[in-house]
Simulated scan of single mutants.
Amino acid sequence: MDHVGVLALFDRDMREGAQPEGSDARVERVGGVVRHVSSERGWNAVLWSDLDETGADAAIAEQIAYFSGLGREFEWKLYGHDLPADLGERLRGAGFTAEPEETLMIAEAAALDLDAEPPEGIRLRSVTDAAGVDLVADVHEKAFGTDSSRLRHQLLARLSGEPDTVVAVVALAGDEPVSAARMELVPGTRFAGLWGGGTVEGWRGRGIYRALVAHRARAAQERGYRYLQVDASSQSRPILERLGFHPLTTTTPYTYAP
């Protein structure tokens, strides 16, 4: 893989040229910033920026004022190659809180090992309705220890309004949901994003996560997407590397609550 070329393509298609996630969202380009604006239950974020040392602080202040005026908490999604080099320090100085750093990993779907099947006793169920969304949300809360109401709202909206832009799957042990994940598809691009892969404690280390990656990769290929993208935690990065994903840069969410 041409790491430099693929990263540049990712920046162009998925960040600078981002599309809104859902009918209640919009993408705005203001100066050197591209931001995603949604409802209180949606995702509000700065996706891309083209800043230098002289204009960065003013751009940060402008985004704080804008989202605070809407009463929205928002995220500045910072990548390791973004400029200026001290942008993360400037965000912290302006009141942002840094979440754990992740690794942007990308693979060509056709180059992956897609033979990974669920372990014995586990079956995969495609999520297409509210009952399936409830199972995904249940796994999310147990695996990550966080509230799943926003995820529930967003996934239901996608499945009802734009079903061709999302693939969701849950792993069941009998009738018990033990792992879940989704894939977001961006029409007109070559990238499919893998998100939310989580397994309930007690079921980890058995190959379920690997099977969910393979399931979504096959679905991406069937729909004509060339690349798969993941913001990988330190736990999932080794699994993804063994499957054939390449680390291209880091990504850190900086959050601001007005």
Score class of each variant (00 low, 15 high):
186 V>I: 13
150 R>V: 03
120 E>M: 09
210 R>T: 14
189 T>F: 02
116 A>S: 14
199 T>C: 05
191 F>Y: 03
131 A>K: 06
133 V>A: 06
165 T>D: 04
172 L>E: 13
152 R>N: 09
165 T>V: 13
121 G>Y: 10
187 P>D: 08
142 K>Y: 00
147 D>E: 15
131 A>T: 10
160 S>Q: 15
109 A>Q: 09
213 V>K: 01
115 D>G: 15
110 A>F: 06
211 A>F: 04
176 E>P: 00
130 A>W: 00
176 E>H: 06
169 V>Y: 05
158 R>K: 12
184 E>D: 11
151 L>M: 14
153 H>S: 08
169 V>S: 11
141 E>F: 04
169 V>A: 13
166 V>M: 06
203 W>Y: 15
119 P>F: 07
214 A>E: 06
130 A>D: 12
140 H>R: 05
144 F>G: 12
189 T>S: 14
124 L>Y: 09
135 L>Y: 02
208 I>R: 02
207 G>C: 04
182 R>G: 02
150 R>L: 05
118 P>M: 04
162 E>K: 11
210 R>K: 14
164 D>Y: 02
161 G>P: 07
120 E>F: 04
111 A>H: 10
210 R>F: 01
144 F>M: 10
215 H>S: 13
164 D>I: 00
182 R>V: 00
165 T>I: 07
171 A>G: 10
137 A>G: 14
149 S>G: 08
176 E>G: 01
181 A>F: 11
213 V>I: 15
146 T>N: 09
158 R>P: 00
209 Y>D: 03
